[in-house]
Design a protein around this nucleic acid. Structure first.
Lengths: 221, 221
DNA sequence: TAGTCCAGTAAACATGTGTTCACTCGGATA
DNA sequence: TATCCGAGTGAACACATGTTTACTGGACTA
């Protein structure tokens, strides 16, 4: 039940006092409901400007103070997704990897990470393949950066030391697509079905095992 | 420029004479523009009933003679996608696989197949992860069937004979997601850039090599 | 041949849509 | 203190949307 709130917006939340501060605040207030709506199973391309502004508690015209059109809002979402991915890598880097069963623990950590940021990942997983070409392209770029960083990290860790850089990048690409695929599956998990959950995690772990097994035996040429 | 065509619809195309024949025909005439619009880079969830009927040369109300709502149309598209996938497997089965460089030739065949049915694959790749939960779920089911059939075929061919059935299925799942991912990439290839095209095919081939390499060395437990 | 059925029509409905415009009114600045 | 700037307002616009309703006319069938 989407309740309409004709509240005056200004008086909302903590008063930001500063002007740029206010602008940034409302910008976020526009981004947030967009993400929420997508999280509720709506395609990005089906969102309407009025719907978003309504949910943000702002008049439609105010939208244009922040974005030229919906696509620009979409790109902001992609940017946010990119930040989320980078943050994930940063955390992984910090934690290092436990020697035993590290693949499984990585998967579990990833699962948790996805669930805690379900909206962003729903957006990424959803718009990655479809919808508007411009944002699909943007997501692809973020993915590529993510893969590059991951390759770099693996290199630094001494994992798969025999692989050439292109080969490593190619494998990281495979890992990334598998991850985002899994994200979609994770988010669609019905709650309170630990068996199904377990199955999904296992499947995910096994797939990764296969990939890294293949990577270990990879020979150039 | 979407030209509106207020043509009387009845007089369109070859006169179907039979009544059920007519109904089936218009049903297809509704499905077709939906696919086309999606192929033009529109998310499924952004399609409107009126847009579709307009493009089909039919009055909006006529839509309800064929589908309860847009979701039902979407499911018809998924069904069509499923048929396309099954057909792909059937072809692969018929052709068998040449012993030399069979992975690369498979990829090239697949690429061609995707390009020739670009609309269906754009739909599958696009709605697989996002948009409406109901059609996302439906696509997932088709994918799973596809993976099962593929596993069965590999079994019959004697490929990877040491793998248990669950393991084989899990690997086919990985292959399928990789394929559909690649479909999206293939469809976004800018025309007349053979270098980029070559790169993508190579990357795709290598990823598959990694997967099958991993599969060969897979041990249960 | 008379009668039924039903795919497609035409019109109307209540809403929802993107975009524009002149406006206000409070923080920033000189 | 007086001025300016610009984030957010409110109203209006010209359409587009989903759905319903009574209808028409040709293919079927008894």
């Amino acid at each position: 039940m989407a309740t309409s709130k004709p509240k005056p917006a200004k008086a909302d939340a903590a008063s930001p006092s500063s002007r740029v501060e206010l602008k940034e605040r409302t910008r976020l207030r526009l981004i947030e409901p967009a993400l929420t709506l997508i999280g509720q199973g709506r395609g990005y391309s089906s969102l309407s400007l009025r719907e978003i502004t309504r949910e943000a508690g702002v008049v439609p015209a105010a939208f244009y103070r922040h974005f030229r059109d919906l696509d620009e809002l979409g790109l902001a979402l992609v940017e946010m997704g990119g930040v989320t991915l980078r943050h994930l890598l940063r955390e992984a880097r910090r934690d290092g990897l436990s020697p035993t069963d590290m693949l499984r623990t990585s998967v579990l950590i990833y699962k948790r990470y996805v669930e805690e940021r379900s909206l962003v990942f729903r957006f990424l997983a959803g718009e990655r393949g479809g919808g508007s070409p411009v944002i699909r392209q943007a997501i692809r770029t973020e993915e590529s950066h993510f893969a590059s960083e991951m390759a770099q990290d693996l290199r630094a860790l001494g994992t798969l030391p025999d692989l050439s850089s292109p080969a490593l990048h190619m494998i990281c690409g495979l890992v990334v697509t598998t991850m985002l695929n899994a994200a979609s599956d994770i988010l669609d998990l019905p709650k309170g079905r630990p068996k199904q959950e377990q199955e999904l995690v296992d499947n995910f772990v096994h797939q990764f095992r296969v990939v890294f097994l293949g990577a270990r035996f990879w020979r150039e040429r």
